[in-house]
Design a protein around this nucleic acid. Structure first.
Length: 479
RNA sequence: GCCGAAGUAGCUCAGCUGGCUAGAGCACUAGAUUGUGGAUCUAGGGGUCAAGGGUUCGAGUCCCUUCUUCGGUACCA
């Protein structure tokens, strides 16, 4: 018999229970925030028609789409984000009430070459408001980002926003054609990463980096680069100052006053909602690389883990539905990089890792008492306590060890002795974990001490377990 | 895509100018301990030395090719 090697195609990975629980927890928290805002969930298939995904043109785009075959031999592919399927749904279900404010959570696929921290299948959490032109919609997305970060226990973060329209006006002012503007945005967006010198070189003549790689410049003139530098030099920790200076320097550019006013309104809305300069700033170097953004753009940095880059970013994209309807539908939204944020939260020690969902393990070390164990287990489950019944008749040591390895906080011991006395032995596993740190050698003492163990009347089992679960554990747990 | 580095047990690695049956630590399994987690002791399982070819009496070690992984860089709708 030829054995099949267990393996995964490159760029794909498994998430073992511990990782899945951490991810689930994070998603639940953020979902809770946006449901608090009244967003509704939307689920679309992983597979879409290829032309729906890639539009009429876009060969580059098609290269990173995984194609899929079906019996009808249709041209299909896996979605690479949630935004395009959303645009399709908007166009297809015209009866949907507007504004349509929805969130989508699920895997997306990109057939790129995987790199460190980059996979071919990854989960995105998207929130979008469709059908609202008002900057209130953009503001609300930003507020939700802030609330999400705080609900996740991160206080030191910064949401930075800018506006593509303001940037576009600037580029026009610097005599840069609209076709080139996306290239320019891409370079400006690197400011934080590579510094102003390299940005200037990349905007103009290009340069050769340390590894000998040739970076092609955009070929702008020195005057054009000057203009761009003058613009992105406008920075301040206070939103009002940025708006003011922007108005002073560029207010006379045709159409600029109107767009600067949008930034001002957003800033005002944020103030009213209670999100001040310490959390949300205007940063004119935020451009985002995506071509379809046409209004406010924003991103989120964890100040204690900036190396992870933006963990939650987005912007306004009023023209995406055009592809399907031929008419403009205003839309704005953001996408949370679930895996990136999770990695950052782990680095910051903000995620409690759990190996099991069970709070209680019922051990079964006397085979004549199987019915007692089953009854006990379901009694706890009906009381809403997450309970695992040990399967098998291994000796007590193994069963307790199993609970220990899965970090189940409570283990129940119930044998003939307990039954005769009408009690259950409850074992608070955290106590033993703390004790084991101090105790060296001496197995006898370890056996005698039985840390964290106590008996309660069998009838009071549920109440006692509830009480113990409500108490703070004896050892320090991450929240 | 480009530049660089590395691939030996599940993980981290040792293995000298080519030479006994390829090792260690950790992890895992079992026992000491069939009613108690940790520590300790004992035993055990686990390897196509990334793959293929070449040189050689002999290759984990040298040469070539391919693959993969990790850095950096570019791209990222």
């Amino acid at each position: 018999m030829t054995l099949i090697e267990p393996r995964l195609s490159r760029g794909l990975r498994d998430l073992l229970p511990e990782d899945t629980l951490a991810r689930q927890h994070m998603i639940d928290v953020v979902r809770g925030v946006y449901e608090l805002y009244g967003f509704v969930p939307l689920t679309t298939p992983a597979v879409e028609y290829l032309d729906v995904l890639s539009g009429s043109g876009g060969q580059e785009i098609q290269q990173s789409i995984f194609t899929v075959s079906n019996p009808e031999e249709e041209q299909l592919g896996l979605r690479f984000d949630h935004t395009v399927p959303l645009a399709r749904v908007i166009a297809q279900y015209k009866e949907l009430p507007k504004p349509f404010r929805r969130y989508s959570i699920g895997p997306v696929w990109r057939a790129d070459k995987p790199g460190p921290g980059r996979f071919r299948e990854f989960v995105q959490f998207d929130i979008d408001s469709v059908g609202v032109q008002s900057e209130l919609a953009d503001t609300e997305i930003i507020c939700g980002i802030c609330d999400s970060m705080e609900a996740l226990g991160v206080s030191n973060y910064q949401v930075r926003f800018s506006s593509r329209r303001v940037l576009n006006l600037l580029l026009a002012y610097a005599s840069i054609t609209p076709e080139r503007s996306v290239d320019v945005f891409r370079v400006i967006d690197k400011l934080e990463k590579i510094g102003p010198k390299k940005v200037r070189l990349e905007l103009t003549a290009g340069y050769t980096d340390e590894s000998g790689d040739r970076i092609t410049g955009l070929g702008l003139t020195a005057e054009q680069a000057d203009q761009i530098e003058k613009f992105i030099a406008i920075r301040s920790p206070k939103r009002a100052d940025v708006v003011k200076e922007l108005g002073g320097t560029f207010g006379s550019v045709p159409g600029a006053a109107e767009e600067i006013a949008v930034l001002e309104k957003m800033s005002h809305n944020l103030d009213v909602a209670g999100y001040r300069d310490d959390r949300v700033i205007i940063d004119l170097s935020i451009a985002r690389g995506l071509a379809y953004y046409n209004g406010p753009v924003f991103e989120t940095i964890l100040m204690d883990a900036p190396q992870f880059g933006s963990v939650f970013s987005g912007g306004r994209y009023d023209d995406l539905v055009m592809r399907f309807l031929g008419e403009r539908v205003p839309a704005t939204g953001a996408s949370m990089g679930v895996d990136r944020l999770l990695a950052a939260l782990r680095a910051l020690d903000k995620i409690r890792l759990r190996k099991s969902t069970a709070e209680v393990l019922v051990t079964t070390f006397d085979s004549s008492m199987k019915d007692d164990y089953t009854a006990m287990t379901f009694e706890l489950r009906r009381a809403g306590i997450r309970t695992e019944l040990y399967m098998g008749t291994d000796r007590a040591g193994k069963q307790i060890k199993y609970g220990d390895r899965l970090e189940i906080p409570i283990v129940l011991l119930y044998g003939p002795d307990e039954k005769a006395k009408g009690v259950v032995t409850i074992k608070d596993m955290s106590a033993g974990r703390a004790r084991a740190q101090q105790l060296t050698g001496s197995r006898d003492r370890w056996l005698q001490e039985r840390p964290g163990q106590f008996e309660v009347p069998r009838a009071e089992l549920v109440a006692a377990v509830r009480k113990l679960l409500a108490e703070p554990p004896a050892f320090t747990e991450r929240t």
